[in-house]
């Protein structure tokens, strides 16, 4: 995921802002990390460059 995309990303449940934590990144994008919604106390993982923004009940 590219950092620029943070501008328009939102929590899929409450549509509030997300806080980015980067664990690993390369020259192009964030490889591993998470997106945290303070309002829902929900953490959405970024794995292998792909943010998983499925609502909590649908993540398997």
């Amino acid at each position: 995921m590219k950092k620029e995309l943070m501008e328009i990303l939102a929590c899929p449940v409450c549509k509030g802002p997300l806080e980015l934590t980067v664990e690993e990144e390369d020259e192009r994008e964030i490889v591993k990390g998470s997106l945290y919604c303070g309002h829902c106390s929900e953490r959405y993982p970024i794995e292998d460059t792909i943010p998983n923004l499925l609502p909590p009940g649908l993540r398997t």
Binding site: L5, I8, P12, L53
Partner: peptide, 13 residues
């Protein structure tokens, strides 16, 4: 860019 998400709950502002 691609992300995992649901069209009933879009992760966008």
């Amino acid at each position: 860019e691609f992300r995992l998400g649901e069209m009933e709950h879009l992760p966008l502002e």
